[in-house]
Nucleic acid binder design. Sequence first.
DNA 1: CATATATACCAAAGATAATTAGATTGATTG
DNA 2: CAATCAATCTAATTATCTTTGGTATATATG
Lengths: 228, 228
Amino acid sequence: MNNARQIKNVLYEQVARIGKAVSSPKRLELIELLCQGEKPVERLAQESSISMKLASAHLRELREAHLVDTRRDGKNIYYRLADRQVAEFWVMLHTLAEERLVELQMALQQIVSSPGELISNDRENLMKSARKGEVVVLDVRPVEEYLNAHLPFARSIPLNELKNRIDELPKDRPIVAYCRGPYCLMAKDAVDLLMNEGYWAVHLRDGIAEWNFAGKVRDAENIAILKK
Amino acid sequence: MNNARQIKNVLYEQVARIGKAVSSPKRLELIELLCQGEKPVERLAQESSISMKLASAHLRELREAHLVDTRRDGKNIYYRLADRQVAEFWVMLHTLAEERLVELQMALQQIVSSPGELISNDRENLMKSARKGEVVVLDVRPVEEYLNAHLPFARSIPLNELKNRIDELPKDRPIVAYCRGPYCLMAKDAVDLLMNEGYWAVHLRDGIAEWNFAGKVRDAENIAILKK
DNA sequence: CATATATACCAAAGATAATTAGATTGATTG
DNA sequence: CAATCAATCTAATTATCTTTGGTATATATG
């Protein structure tokens, strides 16, 4: 029957709307930024290095795919992920890409496995050590992102303040720095800086979205603390 | 630094390759078909109602995104999902779409909540009843797909044979029919037929991909049986 | 070895999407 | 209430995808 065909076409077309929304590198970067909490357009544009007009256009696409919502506060319009599930989807998408695409694996290796990377499959042990104070978990993202959500036991020193505030950190214990996720270079930069200054530092691949997604499958304790 | 920007662009572009691959309704339909097991191009074209040339082109895209692999057997080239994770991604994608897109929800409701749909959140109980023989779980997909993988305790009667073989089924117990997934209408058609003939029938939303994905988070017993 | 079959490759037409520039809206500030 | 700011909307341009028709390739068959 041709009727059944038409119905099916509608269904797949609808799902493809989500696919289209995540088929552009810029939009993916915006989604990753929004995984760190809500932000106004200008900020999103800055942090993804595109013009505000273009950011606005891409955000509109994301809004029309119902992946993000907006809220007006005075002159600013704040964008946020429409649902926790969107962050989980982003993690699944980039994880799948990392598994399947050799090119991506190679690109990541060049950046990430520089001096000290901590492969983050020992979540349990890291948290155990952090709880005991044997390691310092360091969040190097902007403060607002830290305030929105951060890993358990993490301290906040944004990357651009790290040079000045470096003596707040202990030299006798390892420092585990993390940032927005595997494609964010802030934690790597922080580790480079710390190591130059004689600190014992490694960086975590995961951001809070990845951490939460991994935690979903396991125990609830290590879920990132969500404030507000 | 501009260098960091270039690196990041490469990373997001790579992830976007996967996004692009799943941004076309036809390719999504092909992926769903491949979730049922490997198939040659002609079959995929037939079952998704497109020309072989077009199917070939779309499959090529999927292959270049490393989501599918091929194998030659005589004159035929068989396509299959490159990894279990691809099926999981498909389930997550369409689930997200169903959560976020009102249009999709409405389209699904029209088809699916006709006479008897069984919302499949009582997986445990269904399996318990199936084990005891209190219900008949009926797989109405083509036999090859049943042979490739099927739900535990399921019997196979393909939809096109159902009319002739209908007396193989009992009239005193409920029959739970399932097919390829929520966008496949075969189970619904089977239920309509069964109900007309005085059988007690409902249909399951999930196909084996959805069933396995749901089962991943929970116990291992109810995972679909994988043969071959 | 000629022929049939299944599928891939190539090129071109039509359909969509990305990006930028210019004009517009809605809220705030002096 | 004019000026400003953040962001959007519209329109135009360019780039990219989809789809189809023609041709090529690899395997199988007689």
